[in-house]
C-alpha cells in the first residue's frame, strides 16, 4: 500500500519536473485572479480588506481545480491503470498518490503566495496566520473532492465542463468553512476542526469512491 503510494507520487513529481513548468499553471492563475479582482473592486483599500480572506480562498479553490481534467485521464488512456490493477496494486493508493502529487505541485505554491495575495488585497497582517492555517487544513479537501469529480469524468467527452458541474456542489462545504475559519481568526478552533473533519472525510471516502470510479472506467 505505502510502496504503491510513494511509487506513484515520485513518478508524478519526476514527470512534472520535466514537463516544462506545467505545474505552475495554478499559481499563475492564482496571482492573476488576485490582480484582476483588485482591478474589478477599485482602488479603495477599505472595501477590499473586508473580503480579502474570502477572495484568497476563492482564488485558491479555483486555481487548485484548473488542471484536474488531466489528473487521471492520461493514466487511463495510456494503459498505466490497466497494468496497475492487473499487477494487484492498490487503486486507493494510486488515487492518494496522484492527489498528493497534485497538492505538492499546485497547492504548495498557492499556499506560499496566499499571504502576499491577502496583503495586496489589504488584509491586516494579524489575519494572515488564520488564513494560511485554514488553507493548510482545508486544501486537501479541495484537491481530493476535485479529484473525485476528475475520476468520475476521466475519459469522458466534455470532461472539463462535467468536472466543474460535479465538483461545484462538492466544493461548497470546504469553501464555506474555510472562509469562515479564515475570517473568524485563530479563536474559532471549532471551525478549523470542522474543516479538518471535511478534509479527513474527503481523504477516506473521496479516495475510495475515486478508486471505484476509475475501476469502473476500466470495465
Amino acid at each position: 500500500m505505502i510502496g504503491d503510494f510513494t511509487d506513484i507520487l515520485c513518478r508524478d513529481l519526476l514527470a512534472a519536473r520535466r514537463s516544462g513548468g506545467h505545474w505552475a499553471h495554478g499559481a499563475v492563475f492564482f496571482v492573476m485572479f488576485i490582480m484582476l479582482v483588485a482591478f474589478a473592486l477599485g482602488p479603495q483599500q477599505s472595501d477590499r480588506a473586508l473580503i480579502a480572506s474570502a477572495l484568497v480562498w476563492l482564488a485558491a479553490c479555483l486555481a487548485s481545480q484548473l488542471s484536474l481534467a488531466h489528473l487521471f485521464a492520461p493514466d487511463l488512456r495510456d494503459g498505466t491503470l490497466d497494468c496497475w490493477v492487473s499487477d494487484g496494486r492498490s487503486v486507493v493508493s494510486f488515487v492518494l498518490g496522484k492527489c498528493t502529487a497534485h497538492w505538492i505541485l499546485v497547492f504548495i505554491p498557492i499556499l506560499l503566495l496566499a499571504p502576499f495575495g491577502a496583503l495586496m488585497l489589504g488584509a491586516p497582517i494579524a489575519d494572515l496566520l488564520a488564513l494560511v492555517l485554514s488553507l493548510v487544513i482545508g486544501g486537501p479537501a479541495l484537491i481530493l473532492l476535485g479529484g473525485l469529480a476528475s475520476a468520475l469524468c476521466a475519459n469522458l467527452r466534455g470532461g472539463g465542463m462535467l468536472i466543474v458541474l460535479i465538483s461545484g456542489p462538492l466544493l461548497a462545504p470546504p469553501l464555506i468553512f474555510g472562509v469562515g475559519a479564515a475570517e473568524a481568526g485563530l479563536e474559532a478552533m471549532a471551525l478549523l476542526k470542522i474543516l479538518g473533519a471535511i478534509s479527513l472525510a474527503a481523504a477516506v471516502f473521496g479516495s475510495f469512491i475515486s478508486a471505484l470510479a476509475l475501476k469502473t472506467h476500466l470495465e
Binding site: 468520475l152 469524468c153 469522458l156 466534455g158 469502473t216 470495465e219
Partner: peptide, 27 residues
C-alpha cells in the same frame, strides 16, 4: 443537471449505469 450531463457523456451502457449511479450516491 450534473447527473443528466454525466449520463449524456458516456456511450458505453455498462459504464454509464455505474458512473451515473456513483454520481447520484455522492450527491
Amino acid at each position: 443537471v450534473g447527473y443528466m450531463a454525466i449520463r449524456g457523456a458516456i456511450r458505453d451502457e455498462t459504464t454509464r449505469a455505474r458512473i451515473a449511479a456513483i454520481t447520484a450516491m455522492i450527491g
